[in-house]
C-alpha cells in the first residue's frame, strides 16, 4: 500500500450531508471482478449528463468538472460522508481518480475503515473548519499526518485526530493482514480455549 505521510493539494467542496457510497460510485459502475479502473465511475450520477440511461457528456455544474477543481486531490464533505453501502469500490474509485484525503464533519463507519485500508486519509473536523477550508477556494491545503496538522493557504493551522492504528497503517503503508498473522499463535490459543467453553459456536465438518 502507498504510504501517506504528507500531502499538499487543492480541496473540492461537496458540502452536503449524507453523501452515500451509491453517489460516490453507483452499483451499475462496478462492472468487473476487480478493484481497478473505477475512477471513471466516480460520482457518475453527478459528474455526467444522461440521455435516458446513457451518458451524454460531462455535467459542467459539478465541482470536479470545474477546471479549477478538476485536479483536486482532497475532497470536503458534510456530515455522515460515505454512509450507506459497504462497497469498498467507493474508496477504490476515489483513489483511482486521484483523491488522497477526504475531510468531513463525520463519516460512515465502514467507509472510514475502508479508507485507511487503501492509503486514503479520512479526517473528521468540526463543520466550521471544513467550511473554512472550502472558503479558501483553490489555495492548496498541506496535510502532515505525522503531526496530525493541516495548514491552509494563509498559514492557519488546524490539528486533527486519527485513530492511532489507522495512522500507523497509513504512514507505514503496512499490509495489515500480515500484521494480524504475526499473532497467529494467539488466535490458535483463543480458538482452542473457545472450543472448550463454547463448543456450540464451532461448526464441525459433518454439519457443513
Amino acid at each position: 500500500m502507498k504510504p501517506f505521510t504528507q500531502h499538499s493539494g487543492i480541496a473540492a467542496a461537496l458540502l452536503v450531508d449524507n453523501i452515500d457510497t451509491d453517489q460516490i460510485i453507483p452499483s451499475r459502475e462496478m462492472k468487473r471482478v476487480s478493484k481497478l479502473g473505477l475512477g471513471e465511475g466516480l460520482f457518475a450520477g453527478w459528474r455526467y449528463v444522461y440521455d435516458g440511461a446513457e451518458r451524454a457528456g460531462e455535467n459542467a455544474e459539478f465541482v470536479l468538472n470545474d477546471p479549477v477543481f478538476r485536479n483536486a486531490t482532497i475532497l470536503l464533505g458534510g456530515a455522515n460522508f460515505g454512509c450507506g453501502s459497504s462497497r469498498e469500490h467507493a474508496v477504490w474509485a476515489l483513489a483511482d481518480f486521484g483523491i488522497r484525503a477526504v475531510i468531513a464533519s463525520s463519516f460512515g463507519r465502514i467507509f472510514r475503515n475502508n479508507c485507511a485500508r487503501n492509503g486514503l486519509l479520512a479526517v473528521e473536523l468540526a463543520a466550521e473548519h471544513v467550511d473554512r477550508i472550502a472558503a479558501q477556494g483553490a489555495e492548496p491545503v498541506d496535510i502532515d499526518l505525522e503531526a496530525c496538522r493541516l495548514t491552509l493557504g494563509d498559514g492557519t493551522t488546524i490539528d486533527f485526530d486519527v485513530p492511532p492504528a489507522d495512522r500507523d497503517m497509513l504512514i507505514r503503508g503496512l499490509d495489515y493482514i500480515d500484521f494480524a498473522l504475526r499473532y497467529a499463535d494467539d488466535i490458535d490459543a483463543f480458538v482452542t480455549r473457545d472450543r472448550r467453553s463454547r463448543p456450540w459456536a464451532h461448526l464441525r465438518a459433518s454439519e457443513s
Partner: peptide, 20 residues
C-alpha cells in the same frame, strides 16, 4: 458486523477483525 472488502480478506485469512 458490516465490513468492506479489505476487512473481508482479513477475516477470511485470520478469523479476526482489527477494531476499536
Amino acid at each position: 458486523w458490516g465490513i468492506g472488502t479489505s476487512d473481508c480478506e482479513h477475516v477470511l485469512a485470520t478469523e479476526t477483525l482489527r477494531a476499536v
